[in-house]
């Protein structure tokens, strides 16, 4: 079974030779976490998780952008919190990190800018996870 992210942008070209796509020297996903998940579970379960994650990203990123645009900081932080949780569950560490910045009320970063950054990290995480779904690590 091959999993491809829905509405994958053209930039989501996957390097099948190595699923560790290096971006800024840190991959978008943590291979230990996502790789362990892929190794622990039957393939169909792992794919189901990725589809759920993709759906979460689409919904939460939209909520976050709308909240940022309308200045509803509580909703903005709530969406960022949920994004951080979802990202952590699959090892999307860069997305988790940027979401945690967004959900922290002490941080002063511009919410609109953060929303853009979150979109980018979400796309990167999905791209790498798609590669991982195609070439999961072997057991052990």
């Amino acid at each position: 079974m091959t999993w491809m992210p829905n509405a994958a942008p053209s930039t989501w070209r996957i390097d099948h030779r190595s699923w560790q796509c290096e971006i800024n020297n840190v991959t978008a996903i943590d291979p230990e976490i996502a790789g362990q998940l892929a190794a622990d579970l039957p393939r169909e379960d792992f794919v189901r998780i990725l589809r759920t994650f993709e759906a979460d990203l689409g919904r939460l990123a939209t909520e976050l952008e709308q909240a940022a645009g309308s200045g509803q900081l509580d909703l903005y932080r709530r969406a960022a919190h949920s994004l951080a949780g979802a990202a952590a569950a699959v090892g999307a560490r860069r997305l988790e990190a940027v979401s945690r910045i967004a959900m922290d009320p002490r941080r002063t970063e511009d919410p609109r800018g953060m929303a853009t950054q979150i979109r980018q990290e979400a796309a990167a995480a999905l791209q790498e996870l798609a590669a991982l779904a195609d070439n999961p690590p072997g057991p052990g």
């Binding site: 998780i49 759920t52 979460d56 949920s82 949780g85 569950a89």
Partner: peptide, 13 residues
């Protein structure tokens, strides 16, 4: 769990 991804991970495991 209110975040579907996390719920799905826990459920699958």
């Amino acid at each position: 769990e209110d975040t579907p991804t996390q719920a799905e991970v826990a459920r699958a495991l």
